[in-house]
Design a protein around this nucleic acid. Structure first.
Length: 295
DNA sequence: AAATTGGCCAACCGCCGGCAT
DNA sequence: CATGCCGGCGGTTGGCCAATT
């Protein structure tokens, strides 16, 4: 049962990367690239590391143009927008924030941004010095941003359902996203979801996204392909429902979503969109808690 | 001053989907 | 079509360090 391991676990080094290892990997990558095979790379590069570990190290730390340091308000907004729309899809967020890695965004969300949205003020702390221990680059300055009040006065349009994987599915018209306007297309029926600009245009019968093959964004008038395909696992429920898009939600309700989400994660409870498959009613697509839901 | 607590971040783990065979 | 490999992803953990007690 299970898969064969990607590397010989007994013979690979784990834990923090040394500067020497970093140098080896960086030099190898600059000379040869991955060669299309991360698994074979460590051996070729003379590293006693798992290929996945090399990949992670490269993508999250060593590759060029990585942006470290505090997140801007604009970045906060992009993260919040995408999170509210499709949940914890860190890689998609990262693709919208040049220089940021999914891991960075995930950590930032979990440690700061979520709390910021919930109004929990993190303690003021001095920047860690740890970042100079293992590597030469200066990393995060950990002082929390004081940019939270920007979101406080905003209101959001949201029609949401939290999916089992804690993915809110939303018809959203909120969090103006400055960089791009998003458009998701279902490959099957070309239902579109616009995040940040308009609303889900799901024709006549869907509230959940399904097998979204392309996540496009356009800036200004034109649209261009985003390098992301297979934004899958969001699925559309067929069945003749219509997404309600005219509901205004405040920051409080976004907070509720966050709170709910965490409760859902912990207790396996879900937040349900009141959709007609469940109840035959097409008019109550407002955020709604499942009967067993508790805060 | 020592012990404890909590924040933070790098790295690991395991699952999933795509692709080649 | 079935199987296995690999890359990618999101969740989780380990461990350091500053702040607090």
């Amino acid at each position: 049962m299970g898969r064969t391991p990607c590397c010989d676990k007994a013979n690979v080094k784990k834990g923090p990367w040394s500067p020497e290892e970093d140098t080896k990997l960086k030099e190898f990558m600059e000379k040869y690239g991955t060669g299309g095979n991360w698994i074979a790379l460590p051996h070729k590069a003379g590293l006693r590391r798992c290929g996945k570990s090399c990949r992670l190290r490269w993508l999250n730390y060593l590759r060029p143009n990585i942006k470290h340091g505090e997140f801007s308000e604009e970045e906060d907004r992009v993260i919040c927008s995408i999170f509210a729309a499709i949940g914890s899809r860190w890689s998609i967020m990262a693709s919208q924030l040049p220089g940021r890695t999914d891991n960075d965004i995930k950590n930032y969300w979990n440690t700061k941004l979520k709390k910021k949205l919930l109004g929990i003020t993190p303690l003021q702390r001095k920047p860690h010095r740890r970042n100079n221990r293992h590597h030469q680059n200066q990393h995060f300055s950990a002082s929390p941003s004081s940019s939270s009040q920007g979101a406080g006065s905003e209101s959001f349009r949201i029609t949401s359902q939290v999916m089992p994987r804690s993915t809110p599915v939303i018809s959203s018209d909120f969090f103006q996203v400055p960089y791009h306007q998003y458009q998701m297309k279902s490959s099957s029926n070309m239902n579109t979801v616009r995040i940040g600009q308009s609303c889900i245009s799901s024709e006549d019968n869907c509230t959940r996204f399904s097998n979204i093959k392309d996540l496009n964004y356009g800036s200004g008038g034109g649209e261009e392909q985003m390098g992301i395909h297979e934004v899958s696992k969001l699925f559309l429920l067929g069945g003749g429902c219509q997404v309600e898009t005219g509901l205004e939600y405040s920051l409080e309700e976004i907070k509720q979503l966050l709170i709910s989400n965490s409760v859902c994660n912990n207790n396996n409870h879900n937040l349900y969109l009141d959709h007609p498959i469940a109840n035959g009613n097409m008019e109550n697509s407002k955020l709604q808690h499942a009967p067993d839901f508790r805060l």
